[in-house]
Design a protein around this nucleic acid. Structure first.
Length: 442
RNA sequence: GCGGCCAUGGUGAAACGGUUAUCACAGGGGUUUGUGGUACCUCUAUUACGGGUUCGAUUCCCGUUGGCCGCCCCA
């Protein structure tokens, strides 16, 4: 009979389905924290030391913001946005990126009146309903930098330099792919030229490439379809079609980068998928042996000289920005063997025995914490053995043992975890004594 | 959005269609309730979910869900 009951219970429990993680979404568990901390610290440090101010934007924006800035015909806007109508009947979208929001904030808060350029950084989640893959999630974090209000090419170079430093600090080897896509006008002319060039070979183009011919001609240049290599060789080069100003600008950027010894490669086929880019565009890729992974792009960016005006801000407010995919940065760190110890490490571990000592322990623990000593406990555990095991795992240098007897005597045991030597001291002096011992151990 | 590969405990793996699904690690509890880095004992899976074929399915088939890879695109 009893057995039957148990079975029935087990059956009931089974009937409850645990809700699952949404596709493409991910829990970031405490075990991952060392990586996230490292990246966020590096981001904050590099941004702050170049006097960028932190920008915290809302996750939700009006849909039109993205349609107007990123471009209605882009993949991001066309099929990847989380868009819905909110209860007050407004069309809203979970931001797929932050540059549009940054531009909006710049205009809305009259930042034209501040010293230009206005430099800001962010480290926030973005949302795109794309097909998930390794390093590609529907909610992902971006670390980004924006400098709005200056057209000086040195800013382009500086931003790339900052990114370079950022990765160096994290132990990831990267290089930059650079190109200039000029102004909207020069680009339009170039695209027309490009399309008419490829049209001659229409018959030789694959289905994908035919689509590109009308949808995204620039993409023809880095097509991986068969036979494209030869066709591409005869194709017009964008750099030849740049207007004089863009050309000069790009030359300057390269000069600065050479000066700063930042490794880069020119890639005349690099185009970015968002409409607002102008002039300098770039991508950061990991330098790795198993090179042919699709998601080896860690981030990218470029100038967006016309975006502010496009969104109704002051004419001629040039700007530049970069965004890095945090999950991909972490992937690259792991890929390149950047390790963090998994166990939390502490200097002191507090062991208690019995209720009275646990009670007392609450206070002792607090005193150590206030004194700035890294200390851990396991009040939930009973046996001393288990507690010492934990102390060992967490690489504690000193274990404190407080039992019934010690509570009565007003003492506590200090155990040197390496030698196993123990001494009994007055509990009121334990903080000072332990601090001194730790200093001596280094 | 299109094409392909895959799915066994917290993790990594094993099991020619056939008895209580095996092993390691991690985790919990213990080895007469006060001493760790060893040892021993013990516990932790209706084999992703739902159907089908079969006397019998972890193993075969279909669907769903999810992951991964390529394309598209991007971070």
């Amino acid at each position: 009979m009893i057995a039957k009951n148990v079975d029935a219970k087990a059956g009931d429990r089974k009937a409850v389905k645990t809700p699952q993680l949404l596709r493409g979404f991910k829990d970031i568990l405490p075990g991952e924290e060392p990586y996230w901390n490292a990246v966020e610290d590096a981001a904050r440090n590099i941004a702050t030391s170049y006097s960028f101010g932190r920008l915290r934007l809302p996750i939700l924006e009006q849909t039109s913001l993205f349609e107007r800035s990123i471009g209605k015909a882009t993949d991001v806007v066309e099929k990847e946005m989380y868009t819905f109508v909110d209860p007050s009947n407004t069309r809203v979208t979970l931001r797929p990126e932050a540059t549009a929001g940054a531009a909006r904030a710049y205009i809305e808060h009259g930042m034209v009146n501040k010293t230009q350029p206005v430099k800001m950084w962010y480290f926030e989640p973005m949302f795109r309903h794309d097909r998930p893959q390794a390093g590609r999630y529907r909610q992902f974090y971006q670390f980004g930098l924006e400098a709005i209000g200056s057209s000086d090419p040195i800013l382009d170079a500086q931003m790339i330099l900052m990114t370079h430093r950022f990765f160096k600090g994290l132990g990831v080897e990267v290089k930059f792919l650079l190109n200039s896509i000029g102004t909207e006008e020069s680009r339009r002319e170039y695209i027309m030229e490009l399309v008419s060039y490829f049209k001659q070979f229409r018959k030789r183009l694959s289905e994908v490439d035919k689509k590109r011919l009308t949808k995204n001609p620039l993409r023809l240049l880095d097509s991986k379809e068969e036979g494209m290599d030869e066709l591409r060789d005869g194709a017009p080069q964008i750099l030849d079609w740049l207007d004089e100003d863009s050309k000069q600008h790009f030359m300057k950027v390269l000069e600065y980068l050479d000066e700063a010894e930042v490794p880069y490669e020119l890639n005349p086929y690099l185009v970015r998928g968002l409409d607002y880019y102008t002039k300098t565009v770039f991508e950061v890729v990991e330098i790795t042996d198993d090179a042919e992974r699709a998601q080896n792009s860690l981030g990218g960016g470029g100038r967006y000289d016309t975006l502010i005006e496009l969104l109704g801000g002051r004419e001629d407010t040039p700007a530049i920005g970069i965004a890095l995919g945090v999950e991909r940065v972490i992937m690259a760190m792991k890929n390149q063997g950047v390790e963090f110890s998994k166990e939390r490490e502490v200097d002191v571990f507090f062991c208690q025995l019995g209720d009275a000592s646990r009670k007392k322990g609450l206070i002792v623990f607090e005193e150590f914490r206030k004194a700035g000593v890294s200390i851990a406990e396991a009040f939930g555990k009973g046996a001393l053995k288990g507690q010492l095991e934990m102390a060992d795992k967490q690489k504690a240098k000193i274990a404190l043992i407080l039992g019934q007897k010690e509570v009565l005597d007003g003492t506590i045991i200090i155990r040197d975890m390496e030698s196993g030597a123990q001494e009994i001291v007055n509990i009121d002096k334990v903080v000072a004594i332990v601090k001194r011992q730790l200093e001596m151990m280094g």
